[in-house]
Design a binder for these strands. Sequence first.
RNA 1: CGGGCUGUGGCGCAGUUUGGCAGCGCACCUGCUUUGGGAGCAGGGGGUCGCCGGUUCAAAUCCGGCCAGCCCGACCA
Length: 481
Amino acid sequence: MAEKVTPRSEDFSRWYTDVVQRAELADYSPVRGSMVIRPYGYGLWENLQAALDGMFKDTGHQNAYFPLFIPHSFMQREAEHVEGFSPELALVTHGGGKELEEPLVVRPTSETIINAMYAKWIKSYRDLPVLINQWANVVRWEMRTRLFLRTTEFLWQEGHTAHETEEEAQQETRQMLDIYARLAEEWAATPVIRGRKSEAEKFAGAVDTYAIEALMGDRKALQAGTSHYLGQNFAKAFEIQFLDRNNELRHPYQTSWGASTRLVGMIVMAHGDDQGLILPPRIAPHEVVVVPIARSDADERHSVVAAADRVRNEMVDTGVRAILDDRAEVTPGFKFNEWEMKGVPVRVELGPRDLAGDQAVLARRDQPGREGKQAAPLAGLGETVRRVLDEVQNALFRRALAFQEENSHRPGSYGEMKEILADTGGFQYAGWCGSAACEQAVKDDTQATIRVIPFDQPDDPGVCIACGEKAADEVVFAKAY
RNA sequence: CGGGCUGUGGCGCAGUUUGGCAGCGCACCUGCUUUGGGAGCAGGGGGUCGCCGGUUCAAAUCCGGCCAGCCCGACCA
């Protein structure tokens, strides 16, 4: 591996594909539209999973697992749900050498099977709330696919909850969106806009869909997590009923929420540069790589590698995820480039000159070349590195936030918005009257869609950017993944 | 599904026009020398040239058919 990638500025799309493959996050599989997540990419996903799972547990959720196959008829019980998913379903028609009585759907999401079970489990208000999450794979037969961003099969988590009251369910929906926002900002160092989706963009079957949107390096938006308030739509379709405190039969109010391996793509596109990945320390598989530098002289080699091993161990003891790259068959220069491609936040270089001076050289991935290098005493190196890692984490977030701010516009007219969208892109904050016609007209004309109706609203949203009527809300238009 | 392109060691390609020993770069293996920003030299392994048929003394190359993949337009975490 480890040759140059297509420069980001030249062709962002190719740069992305190159980086994902060269950094060994993923590779194409023999099946069109699907991919293999390689150990390094999976390690990144596991860290995201662990962060999310911890937050889910902290808020009272439990994990469970529901089956991959769903009876076809289940998909058809909720009218809008059918509408939304039928074109992208994978159907199993044969099993055990025979044609099946009823085809099975490979889950595109588990709403229907889970709600069919909830109908059995929920009988009383005492059974509520039900707070279940599952980690699973799902399949959606997409036309155009891209590594991590849109593949036929992908990994995600889907939470499905049922509540006694509307308020409680609404609160749950917002709480989970907030968890996604925290994951993006505090762990993945990627600032997001929190808001509600328009009718056209919401999940089929939901009353309201909320989402977080992040801005990628090419100034396109990426939806990084969604949380749906489902009302009683699925409860009615699947006849979930409970006896309330007044002995009256009622349908529960529900939510569902999900985030996927797409987050890996987000991290690549939010932080990466021409040298490859740049990973935020909190979710990086390796926070630090120690590279010993030694000539072939056997004694020198041994003493340098032994010292490098001690440095690694000290960092592990300090709670830093550190590895030692003691391969003898490649040069230090090769290793520098390789670990930069893989986005390791901090590199520790240790050679004979350093040992003589009881120091090591620290190189920050977020600052290129000499600029990011500093010498640090071997004594207390673990603590020093811990501090530098925190600085890198913060610097990445600040840089991404500054980029988002620079690329957030408030165009004064439709013409101006169209021009900005065509020239540079980014988030366009603009008034919207709320009509689907205006939304569609902008999409047809500019390819930009309403990403979210932000929770943070100005006192006066002004006028609709498309029709000039009084605006109902300020919304964010952007071209999106 | 409509339009454009491509199928040759693992990857990227040349060779096809004008038929004549299947080649190059990277990667891989072995050895020696190297190692502070992608090491050098020497040796080596690996290909039914997408598939089927035809023409010919001879086909990666010419002819016919088929298949697969990529890119661009209608769906989407």
